[in-house]
């Protein structure tokens, strides 16, 4: 997934779309907005980021899970099988991005990249609702996909590459 931080206006439509699409319980969120301002006035640099689980290539949350509930699904998305989850929270402690939370029903919840929509050929709810088209979702392994093209054309960063998890949400700068 790519997030164009130059287009994002922090309207939070992605957050609300996700809540509605995935019936995220009150008080919780699977994606969120970060507004970051750096520098000294008047030399300020602001960045808006729509953040979520990075569906890491080396996901420590999956390594930490004792039951196999947390797993890497086909296509690379990191998912939690509710039926197998004990709520031990090892994965929560293992995620450097704090992208997970305990659902009030006991299992651990997080962004699924809306795989249920992808199976229907639709984009994730957050991507499809974004009014500035700053979010893009697709196959990084396919050089012709929109995400691959954006990564070729733009400067980008991932969050905390030093964790070594290989995060897969890219922030275009």
């Amino acid at each position: 997934m790519t997030v164009d931080t130059r287009l994002c206006v922090a309207c939070k439509a992605c957050v609300l779309a996700c809540k509605a699409e995935n019936a995220v319980p009150d008080g919780f969120c699977r994606d969120w907005l970060v507004e970051e301002t750096r520098g000294e006035f008047p030399d300020l640099h602001a960045q808006n980021r729509s953040e979520r689980c990075n569906h890491c290539s080396e996901p420590p949350c999956v390594d930490a899970c004792p039951t196999g509930a947390s797993h890497v699904a086909g296509g690379g998305a990191v998912l939690v099988t509710h039926d197998k989850c004990t709520g031990c929270k090892a994965c929560i402690a293992a995620c450097p991005y704090d992208a997970r939370y305990v659902h009030p029903q006991g299992w651990v919840d997080k962004c699924t990249f809306c795989l249920h929509r992808a199976r229907r050929g639709e984009k994730p709810a957050c991507v499809s609702v974004c009014p500035t088209f700053c979010l893009e979702f697709g196959d990084l392994a396919d050089p012709d996909s929109d995400v691959s093209r954006r990564l070729r054309e733009r400067r980008y960063k991932v969050l905390h590459p030093e964790t070594g998890c290989g995060p897969n949400v890219y922030f275009l700068e």
Binding site: K12, V15, G27, F28, C29, W32, L33, V34, E35, E36, T37, R38, G39, E40, E51, D98, Y101
Partner: peptide, 10 residues
């Protein structure tokens, strides 16, 4: 300086 505001309050 660095100022970070997040909407996440899980």
């Amino acid at each position: 300086n660095l100022e970070v505001v997040t909407t996440r309050h899980n």
